[in-house]
């Protein structure tokens, strides 16, 4: 038995080596696939649901197979765009700035929703004694993901302008990871107050997924530029043009398009450019999130 166990061990090692090398040699390079991802600002299952009709539409428009990969980490999307593992990504304003820096300025934002040009964040709480930002001192507070624009960066920037430093003035700072999770944190009392993207808040209120008698908005930020669809810089310009046109062609009068726009919570898509996000870059520097 001991002998066979020895043999087993040796065999195990040898086999493992053999398979590792066998798998190493299988390379794949399927073209005509458009690889898409999105920052996980909502639950990945929700993102997949939202993307499905848009993916079909893009397949029809470009003639390519569209593959959507859900992720649970903001930075992984940025990194994947930089290492060319994805072609097209739905980014927030700040993640776009990060992607721009990581790709040495080559990432191109193509379109944004009309709403993204005047985006806001909402501060929410279930505590009736919190009525203004200054009441947040000494409370526990939930941001979204650390690299979220509307759930972390811009609120932090506006808190700073109101004279509040989250690390010093709040009792505890948590990162819920996603906007809907922030609402769950605040509704459950895990954090006394939190901040999230206005669009997700409005959706949750519309869908009655939040009890507005309990959780209420007590402050809203001034508007800023947020989300866009970004392509990696070395994508075929003809394809970039096709994608841009496909988004811009979406027309709310067309019922099929209306469904897509509805799921994306967009009135329509409008062209965007890098310069739109310079404000966010400045805010990120002054809030200490960019160095």
């Amino acid at each position: 038995m001991t002998l066979s166990a020895t043999r087993r061990l040796a065999l195990k090692g040898a086999l493992a080596c053999a398979f590792a090398s066998a798998f190493a040699s299988s390379a794949l390079a399927a073209d005509a696939v458009l690889r898409v991802s999105a920052i996980p600002d909502e639950a990945p299952t929700e993102l997949q649901r939202k993307f499905a009709p848009l993916g079909k539409y893009l397949e029809a428009q470009t003639g390519m197979k569209v593959v959507f990969t859900p992720v649970s980490d903001y930075a992984a999307v940025v990194e994947s765009l930089a290492t060319k593992k994805i072609d097209l990504a739905w980014l927030g304003g700040f993640t776009f700035v990060q992607a721009k820096i990581r790709t040495n300025g080559t990432a191109i934002p193509i379109v944004q929703r009309a709403e993204d040009a005047v985006f806001t964040s909402r501060f929410i709480t279930a505590d009736p004694t919190i009525k203004a930002l200054s009441d947040l001192k000494g409370k526990t507070f939930a941001f979204g993901a650390p690299s979220s624009t509307s759930g972390s960066l811009m609120p932090r920037f506006f808190l700073q302008q109101a004279g509040l430093n989250p690390e010093k003035d709040f009792k505890n700072v948590a990162f819920s990871g996603a906007h809907d999770a922030t609402v769950a944190f605040v509704a459950a009392g895990k954090a006394e107050a939190g901040v999230l993207n206005a669009s997700v808040w409005d959706k949750l209120v519309e869908q009655k997924k939040v009890d507005t008698d309990k959780v209420h908005v007590f402050a809203t930020t001034p508007p800023y530029f947020d989300y866009n669809w970004t392509v990696r810089g070395d994508l075929d310009p003809a394809l970039v043009k096709k994608l841009t046109d496909a988004f811009l062609k979406l027309d709310p009068a067309n019922p099929e398009h209306k469904e897509i726009l509805g799921l994306q919570r967009a009135a329509k898509f409008i062209p965007t450019k890098k310069e739109n996000y310079e404000g966010i870059e400045k805010a990120a520097h002054s809030a200490g999130l960019l160095k």
Binding site: A43, P44, T45, V71, S72, D73, A76, S176, G177, A178, D180, A181, A184, F185, A188, K190
Partner: peptide, 18 residues
């Protein structure tokens, strides 16, 4: 929990959404 797939990723989501 950090996005490396499997049961943990599901658990992370379920826990975050409570």
């Amino acid at each position: 929990f950090v996005g490396a797939g499997g049961l943990g990723q599901l658990m992370d989501q379920a826990m975050k959404m409570l």
